[in-house]
Design a protein around this nucleic acid. Structure first.
Lengths: 156, 156
DNA sequence: TATTGTTATACTCTATAACTATA
DNA sequence: TATAGTTATAGAGTATAACAATA
């Protein structure tokens, strides 16, 4: 690949993201989980017990997608479903002991990955970069048009 | 969506990218092309004529994917295929007059979008951000393991 | 009637395998 | 034999529609 496109912001964002995702995947490989699955564990490790729909909203995914995510984690014995006694339509999803261990180790690996990824930067650059990125990620970025509320394409 | 994940680098990169892509798509809407298609036009507007495979390499996509990309652009009369006289296996893909116009206008809209996206930043922040992003996007980010040459997942 | 989880289905994106025509 | 373009096909990933259980 040459670099006709490498000065384009979209290209840079996409490839920075791909690079980081690849690093994360590599780091989590020995744990046997994906970055996606780690993110789900993070969300499910909340103070209050979450239903599948609660977790789906937190992750920004469809509830049908959430079914598959929980299926995966349950197959690995990282989480378990139980019917909510308060509302028997709901599945409360909680981490198993194994899941809590995987979460802790995954978070450790994840932090290492972030650190390694930003290692080339000075602490000041690093801080500034994250601050800017937060702005750009939060920004709904709808400039000129007045669309009322189009649903965002959200992923963890 | 709440923000349990919003301090994670992966999340920030992904959502900054999604936001920018959405802005770009909105900006190009009146032109009737996608950001992807604009990137293909940029590549095909090279000094030397490119075959489909040349362009695919430049874009970092598979040659089968390239077929579809050229099909789309040809359907919109933005590019045209012609057999290479030197090697009749090759399709040289060139921009039509209409394609050149679309490219110019698309690039104008694209630059506006980049500018708007970075508008909240000071010029110094902007410059620093792009410089850092370039580093992170270029970085193959293979830290601890010595894999010889795994093919990257490339997209424009 | 509305909501939660589920399944079936479809759609997008992209890659692999196989075919053709050329070299 | 190898390469360029093409087609058919399959695999992720995710969404929509419909259904059962529950509210």
């Amino acid at each position: 690949m040459a670099d006709l496109l490498t000065s384009r912001l979209g290209y840079l964002l996409k490839h920075a993201q791909l690079n980081f995702a690849a690093s994360g995947a590599r780091a989590l490989e020995p744990l046997g989980i994906t970055g996606r699955q780690l993110a789900v564990l993070v969300v499910l490790d909340a103070a209050e017990p979450l239903s599948q729909l609660d977790a789906a909203r937190e992750l920004g995914v469809d509830r049908t997608t959430m079914v598959a995510l929980v299926d995966e984690l349950e197959a690995k014995d990282l989480v378990e479903r139980r019917r909510s006694p308060d509302d028997r339509r709901k599945n409360i999803v909680g981490l198993t002991a194994h899941g809590k261990k995987a979460l802790a180790e995954g978070e450790r690996l994840h932090k290492e990955t972030e650190k390694a990824f930003l290692a080339e930067l000075t602490p000041i650059e690093s801080e500034l970069f994250l601050r800017i990125l937060k702005k750009l990620a939060a920004d709904t970025a709808r400039e000129a048009d007045g669309e009322p509320d189009q649903d965002e394409n959200e992923n963890a």
